[in-house]
Design a binder for these strands. Structure first.
Length: 136
DNA sequence: GCCAACGTTGGC
DNA sequence: GCCAACGTTGGC
């Protein structure tokens, strides 16, 4: 079981849209590092859902329900996407500022390489953020 | 194959 | 809206 963090601009695709749809394809990745992470995702892995620009906070938890396959929106066929299912929202969103202020989390990829849209999260980071978000 | 120029992302 | 950081492109 691995943990991830995926980012979306709420303007484009927000958590509430994700929840409404239930399962949706995580498309639009056009970066090779992010692609490598998508390829590493396994069915049943969990991912934090992060809102960039608006909010700058982790708002929910999603589950990988389909492993990487070619992105239907990518004409070149070079990039992939996965299917994610909305699992549960955080009771309290965990903001970027909060993460930066926490010693345990200050070296997360989210802080170090904020532009990467799909990132690995360690088990420790996962637990800490769930707790901060008000989940068991 | 190097590197400068450019475009995009995302925090502030 | 600005700008720093990063990735990509293209000239040499």
């Amino acid at each position: 079981m691995a943990y991830w963090l995926v980012k979306s601009e709420p303007d484009t695709w927000s958590w509430s849209q994700h929840v409404k749809k239930g399962v949706d394809a995580w498309t639009g990745v056009r970066n090779h590092q992010a692609k490598a992470h998508l390829n590493a995702m396994k069915k049943g892995d969990l991912a934090f859902y992060y809102h960039s620009n608006e909010g700058k906070e982790i708002v929910g938890v999603s589950e990988v329900v389909k492993e990487a396959y070619p992105d239907p929106n990518d004409k070149t066929g070079a990039f992939v996407c996965v299917d994610l299912k909305a699992v549960e929202p955080l009771k309290t969103p965990v903001t970027l500022a909060t993460i930066k202020a926490d010693k345990k989390l200050a070296d997360m990829v989210l802080v170090k390489n904020s532009r990467l849209s799909v990132q690995p999260v360690t088990a420790d980071e996962w637990k800490a953020i769930r707790k901060m978000g008000g989940l068991k």
